[in-house]
Amino acid sequence: MVLTCPVGTGRTLSKQGRAGHSRRGLLRAGALVALGGVATPLTGCGLLDRDDAPPEPDALEPLVAESLALEARHRAAATAVPALAGRLNPIADAHRAHADEMRRMIGRPAPSGTPTPGPSGSPVTGRAAVLTELRRAEQQGQTNAARACAAAPAERAAMLGSIAAARATHVEALA
């Protein structure tokens, strides 16, 4: 990509006419790419060498990841079995809302974009099998959220309680 664009090296390439890319220019661009490739890890080392400890992962991070994985599973299942989309998409939306709410509470903004495809393994097909798989995932999710609610500080207990209860209702909705 870099090589297809004019590179701002500070010197014009007008001598080369309309073609725009001299051999020297291309080499210079390549050198910049190489430098960039080297410079990034160096910067990384510099950060790691500082005295600041890396930020402790928030206790909610695993639940955020679980919500996003559950969202991805429901979206994938809705694609695989379109007849279930009307049931599954609201549940997927709820998982996304849970992830957003937890991130807000953690104080980290949500990365934009579509959900990452979760580690769903081999795609399950067939209406009954899809529902069974999703119910199992929601049950595990409910257990995890309930455990988190029990251990949470007061300011997070209500939100986690709602998430645990929501996951329980998902099991019901998937029955």
Partner: peptide, 23 residues
Amino acid sequence: ALRATRWRRTAGVNPVTVPFPGR
């Protein structure tokens, strides 16, 4: 929350769930 979901289903309300029960 579970009973609310079951009543919504009985009533034909869709979706049968809410994102944050009790909020």
